[in-house]
Design a protein around this nucleic acid. Sequence first.
DNA 1: TTTAGCACTCTTTTTGTTCAAGTGCTAAAC
DNA 2: GTTTAGCACTTGAACAAAAAGAGTGCTAAA
Lengths: 347, 347
Amino acid sequence: MKLDERKKKILSSVVEDYIESAEPVGSKTLVEKYKLNYSSATIRNEMKVLEEEGFLEQPHVSAGRIPSTKGYRYYVDNLMKERKLSMVDIDYINNTINGFGDTDAIFEQVADVVSKVLSTPTVITRNNTDTIENIKVVKISEKLLLIVLMSKNGTVKDCIAKLTDTVEDSVIDQMTSILNQNLTGTPLGELHYALNKVIRRDLEAFSTVMGDIVNSIKYEMSKDLKKLNSGVEKILDNPEFTDIERVKNFINMISTKEIIDSALQKTEENKLSIVIGSENKEVLLNDYTVISLDIEKDNKYLGKLSVIGPKRMDYAKTISTLKYIKDKFNTALTSNKKEEAKGDNSE
Amino acid sequence: MKLDERKKKILSSVVEDYIESAEPVGSKTLVEKYKLNYSSATIRNEMKVLEEEGFLEQPHVSAGRIPSTKGYRYYVDNLMKERKLSMVDIDYINNTINGFGDTDAIFEQVADVVSKVLSTPTVITRNNTDTIENIKVVKISEKLLLIVLMSKNGTVKDCIAKLTDTVEDSVIDQMTSILNQNLTGTPLGELHYALNKVIRRDLEAFSTVMGDIVNSIKYEMSKDLKKLNSGVEKILDNPEFTDIERVKNFINMISTKEIIDSALQKTEENKLSIVIGSENKEVLLNDYTVISLDIEKDNKYLGKLSVIGPKRMDYAKTISTLKYIKDKFNTALTSNKKEEAKGDNSE
DNA sequence: TTTAGCACTCTTTTTGTTCAAGTGCTAAAC
DNA sequence: GTTTAGCACTTGAACAAAAAGAGTGCTAAA
């Protein structure tokens, strides 16, 4: 798997030319455009070796070469140079991810920015390993309760329960303490199951009121499973989408939550996960590359942001941008601007 | 614009056959398939008249006829018979729209059901003519306020404001009463502007805390503008989507909030709005039909549900289904199941 | 008023031809 | 041993011509 300098140069030229042109790259193009000081025949011989080694592919005998999954992988791991972001992009990112709003809002902002800067569909999934720290129940009116869930990470969730009957303040206090005893420390993702247990074991006495509360919480939590899709249409401008069937398949795939979920495994500590073409376990994704980064706040895992594009995506730009975004994202999450004064923007 | 019985029969046969087959309908097909007791020559003469009158169109001289916008319009207004829903659909609708959850949840359920039963993209837009009735501010902890907005229609919205500084209870009371004095009666859709006015005029004294509160409310309200899109991919299975450009245009269009918004005018009292092809003011929609119904609760207008399909959509099924859905929808909204005991479903 | 018959038009499908791109191989050159 | 010029070969793309098929409009007869 060791390539000499000339082969490396050829491979990276093929990858970069193909990323730019979407056309198979021939030996002549390579010599002329990338000033390789050899004749096209030499390049041809080298390309043949690269093909035999599995780095390049040939769509058909009279076409140039395109990178294989293995070729892209080698390029990403060994040959690619990271790229500086353009000032335009930097400005746009900095101005848009301003950290205002709650976590949900920031997630939305980021998904939007990424899909705009990279012209690529962007998916954000949330994963709640965050745990319940405290539950408060506040009586708003005769038949309205507010339930506030505070998590260890500092997220505050709340929901309203409309009651069937009026309820004594003392009963509310009792229920609140039972809820706290049973649920403190429960990961938000598992709250659903925990609630079912609680309602069976301890709370039959308060059944209807408790039912109202529990259902209200369950519904609020279900919102969190939501997947955030942004800029799906962007990918359709790539030249690989001239085939109608492919468009349909892609739209279907991206609309199917399960497929995307399955495609995203946990990434390595602090690194971007790059899954190229057939490296994807999900067969439907074998023609695409998925690049994901973990979203963290105070070292807690909150979820994952992924962009999806053709294998022929601009790896250098995508990766540089995502790394930059990751920092901004973290800053936005930790320094929640809600806590800062807002007197300045009078609009 | 009066058509004799034979012309009516021919027109409705052309429309129905074209809806089914997506192919221009010729005179021979008509005679054989729809047992018209005339020769194909007679039918041809009649079709020619119908074309001259603008009810039919001919893609080219050696093709059959397809309905024009005017033809579809006549069909929908005069010829179409409503169809009984299948038991499968009725069951599915009844089981899925169960009225549990808050208004948002019900909207989502309905959008999902509609797009599944009709295999068509479904868009729900919310329009808040609903007005503020009461605002409560509850102190949850030192630096956390809960703001609860209650509307005339009974919707309850709430949001959390994280404060920069601690705040006296008396200040909160003061602010609450100022908010109520200024905002009661304001339509939710205009709250954004009203808040800006308020903060300038009366509340400079409390600026930072008030800023926190106002921004929190603004953010919460912005969620309401959200458009709900369901089943966009469904439309791509129609044979008109073999042209790649058309697919891209459609996906772009449906992703562009403004276009859809502009397409939806207020409908007549208690009726479905059916806008066919070139009847759409928005040029990009001229090849599509948009059918919308108003969503109401206790005679208040809450928003609009629309399905979008090719002009060649199955009008009879779509309209029958939407009428049925409208009832279910209203029932779900009024008899909010949150208020009913949930002891029965122990899962 | 209806219809059989037919010439006509236009699209779709098929088939064949040419063209250009890019290769692999061979033999010569470095 | 490595590199290169040269050339035969393969293949897809583009184009043109031909053939097939569908459905019409019109005429003249029933």
